[in-house]
């Protein structure tokens, strides 16, 4: 189980990395934490000619708070986000989700950008970004573009990133909202059978499911059925019913489509029901 041969450069800047990508977009791969890419290489599921290491680029590092947005560098590791005070204060959903991502020795290298660019259908962070209404900041040969999370995840292991683009950072609007997270995984740190990252502001509920289909996705109809204003059990039941139209039928050896839908409804109830009671404290951020 040894990787096929490839060449390696450590990029000195985002511009250099983009130039490398542009020179051979399909033979070149960015290497961030390597926690998804290196297993694939060792298993010879992927055989790029060149790896461009972006892990140490200062342009991808750091968390900054600007007015009403939190900007998180794509190069931030899972471990750093788990303990960052800005995350705990303004986006605790990220840390809550990260506690379920793999194990300490993987979180120390795996990055936010790598996880989002990899777009594993069962990964937690894409759903978290949907729930937080994040915007992806992408740099390519023709400059910078901003894409909403809802437009970023396009399919199984597929995103709106072009082969010569780099995810630089993402921005999360700081809002007064509740958030909640739940997933069902067979073992601690495993990819989930089904998971939910949810937020609720005064005027919108975002229910982002993962492992329920080819990509993380917002359950729009269920969110619509929840509506706005005071929650009650009837609305949650209606949302659970509506969920059938949101989740695509997705079978795998762990769970049939009907089991997934059932479990998704269980998670929805478990995450949202406590919010009926306004006095129960779940994270409210601003």
């Amino acid at each position: 189980m040894k990787s096929a041969a490839f060449d390696y450069v450590r990029a000195g800047s985002v511009a250099e990395a983009i130039a490398r990508l542009a020179a051979d977009p399909f033979g070149t791969k960015l290497l961030a934490g390597g926690q998804s890419l290196l297993p694939a290489l060792n298993l010879r599921l992927s055989a790029p000619a060149l790896l461009v290491d972006i892990a140490r680029l200062p342009e991808l590092a750091g968390i900054t708070l600007t007015g009403t947005t939190l900007r998180i560098g794509a190069g931030c590791t899972h471990a750093s986000l788990l303990t960052a005070p800005e995350i705990a204060r303004h986006a605790p959903l990220i840390a809550e989700a990260l506690a379920h991502v793999a194990h300490p020795a993987i979180r120390s290298r795996g990055t936010l950008g790598g996880s989002l660019a990899n777009a594993d259908p069962a990964a937690e962070l894409p759903a978290v970004m949907l729930a937080l209404d994040a915007t992806m900041i992408i740099e390519g040969p023709s400059g910078t573009r901003h894409i909403k999370a809802t437009d970023f995840f396009t399919g199984m292991f597929e995103t709106a990133l072009a082969a010569d683009e780099i995810l630089i950072a993402l921005e999360i609007p700081i809002r007064t909202q509740r958030s909640g997270f739940a997933e069902l995984a067979r073992r601690h740190g495993d990819y989930a059978i089904i998971g939910l990252a949810a937020t609720m502001t005064a005027d919108a509920t975002r229910l982002a499911f993962f492992a329920g289909g080819p990509t993380a996705q917002l359950a729009q109809r269920a969110a619509g059925a929840l509506g706005t204003g005071p929650l009650n059990h009837e609305r949650i039941a209606a949302a659970c019913t509506a969920l059938a139209q949101d989740l695509p039928a997705h079978d795998d050896p762990e769970a049939s489509a009907s089991m997934r839908l059932h479990l998704a409804r269980v998670l929805l109830r478990r995450v949202i029901t406590p919010w009926i009671n306004p006095s129960i404290r779940t994270p409210i951020t601003a």
Partner: peptide, 14 residues
């Protein structure tokens, strides 16, 4: 004893 088998035995899923 997978969750799928438990749920099927309980009749929760088909």
């Amino acid at each position: 004893l997978t969750p799928a088998r438990v749920l099927a035995a309980l009749g929760v899923i088909g």
